[in-house]
Amino acid sequence: MNSNLAFLFLEELGNTLIMTFASSALAYVIGIPLGILLVVWAKNGIRPNPRAQEALGVIINLIRSVPFLILVIAIQNFTRKLVGTSVGTKAIIVPLTLASAPYVARIVEASLNEVDPGVIEAAKSMGASTWQIIVKVLLPEAKPSLITNGAIAVTTILGYSAMAGFCGAGGLGAVAINYGYYRFEDGIMWIAILFLVILVQVIQSLGMTLVKKVDRRAR
């Protein structure tokens, strides 16, 4: 690998990390409140509101059902108005976030539903408010599951970022497509894939290590 190619890989590795972690952070800013509402408004939730919960669930499912590449194209005008461009690393963060937030909402919902209902009932009997139950019971009790599912979510978003190479964004996916696939350089394509596999393994390992530190059941 010559120096120019090595520099290219390092630059696009940086772009991949920026796309992945920036969109993951924004997806969680949106997804966590949505996931909490799905649980709180459920039929057996803290503040049951089945109609609102069902409507929110439908909206989330509709967004999740749109293929990522189609979403990128469909919201190009919105992306351009929001960040000033519809191509490049900065632009792809917008559709990455919109595609990931509903997924995050569902995995947050799944994690919170794992909390023992008895713990929630105990908090209610002691006069805890809805906000106190969410902050002091639901989220702390679900923390190991939230972290485990969070690692899965980040690796999924990493996969989305690789597809972004088809849409004019940078990243390792763009290297694999533009320098590997289109130029018939299989070696370059496999190096890009290797980088992506290593990133997935690192994220999963960090997630599992963090789970062991916060999971009281493992002590």
Rank of each mutant, 00 (worst) to 15 (best):
T148E: 12
V115Y: 01
G165Y: 00
G45D: 08
A55S: 13
G31V: 07
A6K: 13
E12L: 03
T148R: 13
A99S: 13
R216D: 09
E141R: 00
L8A: 08
V108L: 07
R47N: 14
F21N: 05
L34W: 04
Q204P: 05
K213G: 06
N149A: 11
Y160W: 13
I46S: 02
L158D: 01
V135E: 11
Y179I: 02
V137I: 13
G207A: 08
I177D: 04
N4P: 05
L26G: 03
E109P: 04
N4Y: 14
P50R: 09
L56P: 03
A128N: 11
V87H: 00
Y182W: 14
L172S: 05
K136N: 15
I152C: 10
G88F: 05
I92M: 01
L158E: 02
T155Y: 05
V39Y: 04
N4Q: 13
A122L: 09
G88E: 07
R216S: 08
L206K: 04
I177F: 14
W190N: 11
L199G: 01
Q201T: 08
D215N: 11
I63D: 02
N113S: 10
V135D: 09
I18A: 02
I18C: 04
V39I: 06
G173L: 06
E12F: 04
A99V: 07
E54S: 15
L112G: 02
V137H: 05
Y182Q: 11
N149G: 14
I59L: 12
Y103L: 08
L139S: 03
S161H: 10
Q132V: 11
I157N: 00
V39E: 05
S86P: 07
L8K: 07
L34C: 14
G187H: 10
A27M: 11
V211W: 00
A25I: 14
V175A: 12
F21Y: 08
A27G: 11
L210A: 15
L69D: 00
S129T: 15
G180D: 01
A25W: 14
F184G: 08
I188T: 05
L13S: 13
E109Y: 04
V175E: 10
S65Y: 08
S3G: 07
G14D: 06
I133R: 01
I59D: 00
N49A: 15
T89F: 04
T155W: 03
L139P: 01
I30A: 09
A6L: 15
S3N: 09
S86Y: 06
A153M: 07
R219M: 13
A27C: 11
E121D: 12
I203Y: 00
P33S: 10
A162R: 02
R219I: 12
I134R: 01
I70C: 14
L34N: 07
N49T: 09
I92G: 00
L139E: 03
R219Y: 15
G168Y: 01
S125F: 10
G31D: 07
F9V: 01
Q132L: 12
S125V: 13
K81A: 15
V40F: 09
T89V: 15
S100F: 04
G31T: 11
L146S: 02
A55W: 09
V104Y: 02
K124W: 03
T155C: 12
K90G: 15
G84T: 10
L62P: 08
I59V: 13
E11F: 09
G45V: 04
G170L: 02
T156F: 13
L38M: 15
N113R: 13
D215T: 05
A52M: 10
C167E: 06
W131T: 12
W190V: 08
